[in-house]
Structures are given as C-alpha cells and as structure tokens.
C-alpha cells in the first residue's frame, strides 16, 4: 500500500500533468528519477518508527528494505545529474560534456546550488552507511547522525526538486512537501520521545 503510493503517485502526477512528452529514453529517465526521489523520502517511513504502520512484523525485513532501496536509489540519484545530459549523446545539439559543465557552474541558480548540496549530502549519507562499521562511533550516535543528515538532505533535495524539477507542478510539489514533512516529523517525534524517555 505504502509502496504503491510512493511509486504510483509520482507516476500519476507525471501522467496527469501538463508536461511536454519527449522520447521514451527521456521519459523513462524522468520517471525513474521521480520515483527515486519519492522512495528516498519514503525511507523515513521504512524505519522502526513506523514498523506498525507498515504492518511488517520483522524488523530485519524493514531494515533490509531500507538498505536495498537506499543503496539502489541513492545510486540513481547520484547519477541523476548525468542522466539529464545523457540523451544528448543520441541527438544533435550541445555536447553532453559541455552541457554538464554549464549545468554544474550555473551558480546563479538556487536550484543548482541546492542540487549540488543535496548530492554531496546524499553521498555522505551513502558512504557513512556503507562504512558504518569502520566508523569510530557508537551505533546510537551513528543513527543520530544518519537521521540528522537525512533530515537536512530531504529538505534540501525537496527544495531542489520543487525549484528545478521539470515535472514539478502544484500536485507534485504538494506531494513532495507533504511526504517530506510527515517523514521528518515522524523522525523528530521519535527523537523527542527518546529524549523525554531518556
């Protein structure tokens, strides 16, 4: 149910929105990117906070899913800047390498700056997760770091997507905002509960 919402809603907004339709390759890239963002926000719900909500009994399964989705779609989103210029390899126009440089150096754009920040944050989250065992920190502090980085990341990434997204219309924006806000609130609630209990 939750998964079909996370995957289905962005696709629905993509399908219903008044966006120009392009080649299959470009649309596939767009959809994959949209779903990736949606699932990344969804990661907030794939934690022990919401195990009951998800109706999954095994905590191990939740964590496994969190990891699998995390690694796959972090990968997708890390490649997302390249995906934007990739179709230029197959059509006439500006060279993809040149387009990529222009893209990364348009510092006048808030959206681009946010995108670069989100990309770096995501890379950090990914690396600190892969090499968690080698980090000189306790699990609880790692989890706190992971949570804080994730909150910062999702705020920056959502802002970036709303600011620059090709398929960002009102519906898509509201979806991203609601999803992000509820995810972040869920996590914050857990932290504050912990603090109180602690």
């Amino acid at each position: 149910m939750v998964f079909s919402m996370l995957v289905g809603l962005p696709m629905l907004f993509w399908a219903l929105g008044d966006f120009p339709r392009r080649t299959v390759l470009k649309e596939v890239i767009s959809i994959v990117t949209l779903i990736a963002l949606s699932l990344m926000i969804g990661q907030f719900f794939l934690t022990r906070n919401s195990r009951k909500m998800l109706n999954i009994n095994s905590m191990g399964l939740v964590i496994d899913l969190h990891k699998i989705i995390g690694y796959i779609f972090t990968g997708v989103l890390l490649l997302h800047p390249f995906f934007i210029v990739f179709p230029r390899y197959f059509e006439s126009g500006v060279e993809p390498e040149e387009a990529f440089i222009t893209l990364l150096t348009t510092f006048s754009s808030t959206g681009v700056i946010l995108g670069i920040m989100a990309w770096l944050l995501m890379l950090t989250i990914g690396l600190t997760s892969i090499f968690r065992n080698r980090l000189p920190m306790k699990f609880s502090s790692w989890r706190l770091l992971h949570g804080i980085l994730s909150i910062v990341f999702i705020i920056v990434a959502s802002w970036h997507a709303i600011e620059l997204g090709r398929h960002t219309d009102i519906a898509m924006s509201i979806f991203i905002i609601l999803l992000s806000v509820s995810g972040v609130l869920l996590l914050l609630k857990r932290y504050f509960l912990n603090l109180k209990l602690g």
Binding site: F19, T102, L103, T106, S108, S109, G111, V112, L164, R166
Partner: peptide, 11 residues
C-alpha cells in the same frame, strides 16, 4: 511552447 526544468543559465 514551454520551458520545463530551466536552470537559468541564460544560454
């Protein structure tokens, strides 16, 4: 017709 996903580079 439309401009979607503009980064504002001005090209």
């Amino acid at each position: 017709n439309s401009i979607n996903g503009c980064i504002g580079c001005g090209t």
